[in-house]
């Protein structure tokens, strides 16, 4: 048994090392004073200074943040609705077509999605720019959002909703006061995933963007093709730090959210039991 344990530990350490080594190397070399990537020339933050002075890169970052915020918000709303439709409304006409439309974009190669959307925008004569990228990213990320929220809804205790409706709460109010707070962690996770995917996308944005809306990955890509530079290492490190802080925050939020939720659910069910007792006795 001990041999098995040691083997497992080695496998996991090797696997995790493989996953993290390139990222760690990148972060370390972003603080390298030397321009040569393999020669360590001492600690320096000069590439960060150069980075923030790089106006086109900063502008692209700002564009990417705007696109990610807009598309993730839209995708979260649409994804919540789609998840509700799939989990709650059992069988409806066109259900299998609907699930197909949700799952196909998850695996569809990005080059196809990008090209297809571009052809649509061109054929309706839409001006390409920030908004066409927002629409394109929403289309892709709403499917990811649906899958995440759907998983949460599937394990949802509908008795809580029924209790509210039995007590005369209208469906819309039930949704906003009972359902939404309970699935909030999943909705938050869906938003974060949609945001990250949008911030990260190169291929679809390259196809669907227009003049004046160059995103950060597009900018990074065009520099990366010319070779490895410490400045791009610095840009990547900033992005990694950004994601790490975001994830840390969401982790804390879902942790406290889960605790509150459990407590609330516990109280609610205790109340329900007490009420039931009172009813039976009277």
């Amino acid at each position: 048994m001990h041999r098995g344990n040691a083997f497992r530990t080695v496998v996991l350490l090797l696997g995790l090392g493989f996953l993290y080594l390139p990222i760690v190397v990148l972060v370390i070399y972003s603080f390298n004073a030397s321009r040569l990537v393999t020669v360590w020339g001492g600690f320096s933050i000069q590439w960060y200074v150069a980075l923030f002075a790089n106006a086109p890169l900063m502008e692209a970052a700002w564009t990417s943040l705007k696109i990610a915020t807009l598309s993730a918000s839209l995708a979260t709303v649409l994804g919540t609705l789609a998840a509700l439709a799939l989990v709650r409304h059992g069988r409806f006409g066109g259900r299998s077509l609907f699930t197909g439309l949700i799952y196909a974009p998850l695996v569809m190669p990005e080059v196809i999605v990008g090209l297809a959307l571009l052809l649509l925008f061109v054929s309706v004569g839409a001006d390409r720019g920030l908004w066409t990228v927002v629409v394109a990213h929403t289309t892709l990320t709403l499917c990811f959002a649906t899958v995440i929220i759907q998983a949460r809804l599937a394990s949802f205790d509908r008795a809580l909703e029924e209790a509210a409706m039995d007590l005369g709460c209208p469906p819309a109010k039930t949704f906003f006061t009972i359902t939404l707070p309970l699935i909030a962690p999943a909705v938050g996770a869906a938003f974060l995933l949609a945001f990250t995917l949008s911030l990260d996308d190169l291929v679809i944005a390259s196809f669907t963007t227009g003049p004046g809306a160059t995103t950060l990955p597009m900018r990074i890509y065009s520099q990366v093709r010319l070779g490895v530079t410490p400045e791009i290492n610095a840009a990547c490190t900033v992005l990694i730090a950004f994601v790490a802080v975001g994830l840390g925050l969401s982790f804390i939020l879902t942790r406290s959210g889960a605790r509150h939720r459990d407590e609330a659910a516990g109280e609610a069910s205790a109340d329900a039991v007490a009420e039931r007792h009172a009813e039976v006795r009277s």
Binding site: L78, G79, L81, A82, L84, A85, R88, H89, F92, G94, F98, L101, I102, A104, P105, I112, V113, L115, A116, L117, L119, L120, S123, V135, A136, T138, T139, L142, C143, T146, P171, A172
Partner: peptide, 27 residues
Amino acid sequence: GSSGGALVRIWPFAWLVVFFALPCLLV
């Protein structure tokens, strides 16, 4: 459930038809 169901499902469905299925046919 189904009274609000149609309203709920039409938006994401319509979005995916217009921005995913239709463009694929266009390709």
